[in-house]
């Protein structure tokens, strides 16, 4: 009995030492966790998570300061991915953070006065135009973050949901109604 106990203790100590050594020997430089988290985030850069962009949010998660259910653009799938990456439980979205369908911004060029305020707000430089000219959204680069909507003094920016087209149409998961075949 006593011997068995000693063996267990010795084994535990040995394994502990090996683990400790490994953590020193194989330590990875930098903060790859934050980078891995950042790779999972949708990069909408919208700030809905309460951080000024995806990277800061990733840093916060990596430090354990932020929850994983704060990024609405990532959708439930994003939370699942984060949960898997971090080895924690899935957590549903809170009341005030619900994902919306994907959209792109659209500038009503009749109304636009060329104030450049939206350009300054856009986190990914997706708006083309110069001072006093009409501005246009480069749809393929717009992340749909909505940050350009509030600054516009003439309210000419609207968010258009991305519609299903031939080019982005997807095959559905096969769902077959059970049909009686006599």
């Amino acid at each position: 009995m006593i011997t068995a106990l000693w063996i267990m203790v010795a084994l535990a100590a040995l394994l502990g030492m090996i683990l400790g050594y490994a953590s020193i020997r194989f330590r990875v430089e930098g903060n790859p966790l934050a980078e891995k988290i950042d790779a999972v985030l949708p990069q909408t850069q919208c700030g809905q998570c309460g951080y000024p962009g995806c990277k800061p949010y990733a840093d916060a998660i990596a430090k354990g300061e932020a929850d994983i259910n704060l990024c609405p653009p990532g959708g439930e799938e994003g939370i699942h991915k984060l949960a898997e990456l971090l080895g924690v439980e899935f957590k549903p979205f809170g009341e005030n953070a619900q994902p919306k369908p994907k959209a792109v911004a659209f500038i009503d060029e009749q109304t636009c006065i060329g104030c450049t305020l939206c350009i300054q707000a856009c986190p990914v430089d997706a708006i083309a135009g110069a001072a006093k000219q009409m501005h246009t959204i480069i749809a393929s680069e717009c992340t749909g973050c909505e940050l350009c909507v509030p600054p516009c003094p003439v309210d000419c920016i609207s968010m258009l949901p991305i519609e299903e087209q031939l080019t982005n149409w997807k095959w559905r998961y096969p769902v077959y109604a059970l049909r009686q075949t006599s």
Partner: peptide, 20 residues
């Protein structure tokens, strides 16, 4: 088509990150 859509999203996210 799901895989293609995901790849596309991934590329868009990478582009957005880069531009940001």
């Amino acid at each position: 088509s799901e895989i293609r859509a995901r790849d596309h999203e991934k590329r868009a996210a990478d582009l957005a990150r880069e531009r940001h």
